[in-house]
């Protein structure tokens, strides 16, 4: 058990070692946190199942530089997301934004949950009616 725990700790620490930039990019820890958050949310389009944070393909390097510059220029997270979407399309973001057709994507689970709830409600209702009916019938 203890061994397993140690192995897990090593495993989780190793992900920090994989990070590609050598040392922090920004002196300001707030800016650095925003930078790391953004690059972990941007898909590397060359290697589609990695974020640009964990890829060293030169396009990922270039995009990290571009994001670095935009952050230094004082651009907001939304403006940076827009910059990327304008060039590469919605697919570049791992987390779809709550705009346009994406709204369907965001609301679909809620919609299905409601349908499920309605079905269950109906089944339960018909079953209880059945038992009360049979009870009154036997009385």
């Amino acid at each position: 058990m203890k061994k397993l725990l140690i192995m897990l700790i090593i495993l989780f620490c190793s992900s920090i070692v994989i990070a590609i930039d050598k040392g922090p990019v920004f002196g300001d820890p707030k800016l650095q946190a925003r930078y790391e958050n953004i690059i972990s949310e941007v898909r590397c389009l060359v290697c589609q199942n990695q974020s640009i944070k964990s890829s060293n393909v030169f396009l990922a390097v270039d995009l990290r530089n571009e994001i670095k510059n935009l952050l230094s220029d004082g651009k907001s997270d939304n403006e940076i997301a827009e910059f990327l979407v304008d060039r590469y399309g919605e697919f570049v973001l791992y987390r779809p934004r709550f705009v346009g057709v994406n709204i369907i994507l965001w609301l679909a689970p809620l919609f299905f949950l409601l349908i499920g709830a309605m079905i269950i409600f109906n089944i339960v209702k018909s079953k209880t009616q059945l038992t009360t009916d049979s009870l009154t019938g036997s009385d």
């Binding site: 389009l45 060359v46 030169f58 396009l59 270039d62 995009l63 571009e66 060039r87 590469y88 399309g89």
Partner: peptide, 13 residues
């Protein structure tokens, strides 16, 4: 050489 225009063109491959 720097690839910035390529980024503005949305080039990825």
């Amino acid at each position: 050489k720097a690839g910035r225009t390529a980024i503005n063109l949305g080039v990825y491959g």
